[in-house]
Design a protein around this nucleic acid. Structure first.
Length: 437
RNA sequence: GCGGACUUAGCUCAGUUGGUUAGAGCGUCGGGUUGUGGUUCCGAAGGUCGGGGGUUCGAGACCCCUAGUCCGCCCCA
């Protein structure tokens, strides 16, 4: 049995054309984050198991992460997410950092589960966080940044929707307002989370099953369904409209609108899991019905840094996975041509390779990316090879060119061919590269 | 962890109710007289039909197991 050439389950090989796409996407992400003053950080891919146990149940950690014992008998996890790590880093330097702290990273993350559409075992995820701002200015800035990412890829406002909700609102609604106990709240929250996946009738049935007989009698379940049908704040009962969390959501949405973000809306069904979020949560979903899933998600988590035994630091952040981003870009036809980094492919007539070494070095010295044909094949095959690599320009060097110090530059896309000095060739080749950027 | 579909050449696939040496297109390689490719012409290589077991005179096809891929569920950081 021969060795398998497949990559590990749920992980991807990045051939140069795949890596080019990744470089393009990450480049834009970095550019936008940095334009808002966010600084890039990184951390080890391994973390001690305890870091995740503190925040999540043991089951989810041991069943859905890569966890193992190292040679020193330490329990180690390959990080499934970045938030605990960045919280740890901030806590470690709690006193000496300048707030508000604006950080971002594009970590490689792993989760142990069965791969499916838009969800692999290994992926990259942009993480953007702002630390030290208790007010909604933080939400406003972070969501604006998220929106700017989509715009930077050329997305139109009708291609995606930014949905906001508040965990405080939901806690108040399910707890004080409707009177569900803690266990019920958790189950109902999970039910609401997958509300869009099931039919209204199924939702009603499952909700009914979670209510006590007296709650059913009082019509609590229908009351909740009515509220969940609300598309705007005005459709909420007056009591809820007066709740501070609603006021805050309204303010964030108003500010976003003023900033030209027209596709942000209130969506009471957005739950964002159920772990560390403490207040406003948000998601960006693809409007393409065939990819109707959340691409980017985040919210406020004011409690995490404090878990490390330091004064808590209010935080708002989001994560944005590379797989869902790529699907969005493909689905909406937003991917540009991504040419190779190689500017020039040098082909030889006869045995001129050795005599051309200085010319090649000079070209590289002038910041041209030069690949040299070493095949010794006939000229036509050398052109074929350059074209297959996607390189636009081929430079022919033979006895004639070496003697005249004028070289034949062939554009392989158009088929045209001209003789120029080395300096002229450098400027032509660089012009083309700038047009692509 | 559970369920469904799929797996034939490097890639995309065809292969009739089980019947001789398993096919196509694209790609790859070689050639069409030694300084011009991507279009064309000629030719070639390339497959224990995912792996193992079974039924049968005979299996790419039928049955069982197993691996992998994809799609759902659970879960979602």
């Amino acid at each position: 049995m021969a060795l398998s050439t497949q990559p590990y389950k749920g992980a991807r090989d990045f051939y140069p054309e795949d890596k080019r796409l990744q470089k393009y996407m990450f480049g834009k992400l970095r550019q936008v984050a940095e334009s808002f003053g966010y600084e890039e950080y990184d951390a080890p891919i391994l973390e001690p198991l305890e870091l995740y146990l503190a925040k999540t149940g043991e089951e989810i950690v041991t069943e859905q992460t890569y966890v193992f014992e190292d040679r020193g008998e330490r329990k180690v996890v390959i990080r499934p997410e970045m938030t605990p790590t960045v919280s740890r880093m901030v806590a470690a330097k709690r006193q000496e950092l300048a707030y508000p702290l604006r950080w971002y990273s594009i970590p490689n993350l792993w989760r142990y589960e069965r791969p499916q559409k838009g969800r692999l075992r290994e992926h990259w995820q942009l993480n953007v966080d702002i630390f030290g701002v208790a007010g909604i200015e933080a939400e406003y800035e972070i969501i604006q940044l998220a929106d700017q990412i989509f715009k930077s890829f050329g997305a139109q406002a009708d291609m995606y929707t930014i949905k906001l909700n508040s965990r405080k609102l939901m806690d108040h609604l399910l707890g004080e307002y409707l009177g569900f106990d803690d266990v019920q709240q958790l189950s109902i929250a999970k039910l609401i989370d997958r509300m869009h996946k099931i039919s209204t009738a199924d939702f009603a049935t499952q909700l009914d099953a979670l209510c006590s007989p007296s709650q059913r009698e009082a019509g609590v379940d229908t009351k909740l369904q009515d509220i969940l049908a609300a598309k705007q704040f005005q459709q909420l009962p007056d009591d809820l409209q007066q709740h501070p969390s609603v006021q805050q959501l309204q303010m964030v949405l108003t500010r976003l609108k003023d900033a030209g973000v027209t596709n942000a809306m209130f969506d009471i069904t957005i739950m964002r899991g159920f772990d560390y979020y403490t207040d406003i949560v948000f998601e960006v979903v693809d409007n393409d019905p065939t990819n109707n899933r959340s691409m980017l998600g985040g919210g406020r988590y004011d409690g995490l840094v404090g878990l490390f035994g330091v004064e808590p630091v209010p935080t708002v952040g989001f994560g944005f996975g590379d797989v869902t981003l790529a699907e969005f870009l493909k689905g909406h036809n937003l991917l540009p041509q991504m040419p190779t980094e190689t500017d020039l492919y040098i082909v030889f007539v006869g045995d001129s390779l050795q005599k051309s070494q200085k010319i090649i070095a000079d070209l590289r010295g002038m910041a041209v990316n030069v690949a040299v044909d070493l095949s010794g094949k006939k000229l036509g095959d050398q052109f074929k090879s350059a074209d297959k690599k996607g390189i636009t320009y081929a430079l022919v060097i033979g006895e004639k060119e070496l003697a005249e110090e004028r070289f034949t530059l062939k554009n392989l896309k158009s088929g045209t061919e001209e003789q120029h000095s080395l300096e002229r060739i450098v400027s032509i080749v660089k012009d083309r590269r700038q047009q692509n950027d």
